[in-house]
């Protein structure tokens, strides 16, 4: 894996990884309610091997987003994910802070 630093922007990383011939998906926080950990517009970049850079929730739901992103790389179809304590998946992946977020996952094609 190439060197990345904390000050890099996920959008630059996405372009760089694509330039290296990797499959890349971008996850974007599109809506938040309540005390969401990361603001709208935050990105997580994922490659086909599950390497990732950036953040959409500060760790709460990244695992699920990465799984969905790798799925989106396979199908090529974008997907809107929703996470929150009211969600039926709350016990598995949820936001302990009590907020709710919608995350859009799409392939860079």
């Amino acid at each position: 894996m190439p060197e990345v630093s904390g000050t890099d922007n996920p959008l630059d990383i996405a372009e760089r990884w694509r330039g290296e011939g990797r499959d890349v998906a971008i996850a974007t926080v599109m809506e938040t309610w309540g005390s969401a950990p990361r603001p709208v517009g935050s990105h997580l970049v994922i490659d086909g091997d599950g390497n990732f850079f950036g953040s959409v929730s500060g760790g709460c739901v990244e695992g699920e987003v990465i799984t969905e992103a790798m799925d989106a790389l396979g199908t090529g179809k974008p997907k809107m994910l929703e996470f929150g304590v009211a969600d039926e998946t709350a016990w598995r992946v949820g936001l302990s802070c009590g907020g709710r977020i919608r995350v859009y996952v799409e392939k860079v094609s």
Partner: peptide, 28 residues
């Protein structure tokens, strides 16, 4: 997201120019 648009957006960001990437959530 289209790779060409991503590159264009990154070029504008690097040049400190404002831009908006508009995604149609119905798939356009």
């Amino acid at each position: 997201m289209d790779l060409g648009l991503l590159k264009e957006l990154n070029t504008l960001r690097a040049a400190r120019k404002a831009a908006i990437l508009v995604s149609n959530l119905s798939g356009g």
